[in-house]
């Protein structure tokens, strides 16, 4: 029986013990990763922000169309088609069109024609939404995303 005070020789080759400990550590680590991921579902039952607005032929250059169900204003120009939100970034009222842009009826925020804030309490410009094309050719607006203002989707 060696004394406790004597330095012990390092175990030269305890392969079995190291492998056992290592794999146990890996298994615990993997399980923890799994458990951490568990509360985050792959997909949540939330309504998607994507909606179709019709084929491009319904939006010849010069068209302006408001889609009331989604509070989105579609503008078609020679450069392409763009979608802008009509929901005030302050407290969510629906902005009204005015000669110089958009006015919010609730607290007087003012936006210019591109949705940039020119006055009032609104913290941010009105967001522009990305537009894409669905397989059947219809234009799709995705109001869960955002594109820089002034982005036009070229048909």
């Amino acid at each position: 029986m060696p004394s406790r005070l004597e330095p012990q020789a390092m175990p030269r080759r305890d392969f079995l013990g190291m492998a056992g400990l290592g794999s146990a550590g890996l298994a615990i680590f993997g399980s923890i990763i799994g458990m951490v991921r568990l509360p985050k579902p792959r997909v949540l039952p939330e309504a998607s922000g994507r909606f179709k607005i019709g084929p491009p032929s319904e939006f010849p250059p010069g068209t302006v169309k408001v889609i009331p169900e989604h509070n989105v204003r579609i503008v078609a120009t020679e450069r392409g088609i763009a979608a802008m939100s009509l929901v005030c970034t302050h407290l969510g009222c629906i902005v009204a069109e005015a000669p110089d842009g958009f006015h919010c009826p609730c607290h007087g925020s003012r936006f210019d024609a591109d949705g940039k804030v020119v006055g009032g309490p609104a913290p941010r410009a009105l967001p522009w939404f990305p537009i894409s094309r669905a397989a059947d050719g219809a234009l799709v607006v995705d109001n869960s995303g955002e594109t820089p203002s002034g982005t036009f989707f070229e048909v």
Binding site: P11, L16, G20, L21, A24, S31
Partner: peptide, 19 residues
């Protein structure tokens, strides 16, 4: 670790490889 019983090491290895 080098003083733990061999059988326990083998079991630990088997169980964690299984997991």
């Amino acid at each position: 670790i080098n003083q733990i019983d061999h059988r326990i090491k083998i079991w630990l290895l088997i169980v964690s490889l299984g997991a």
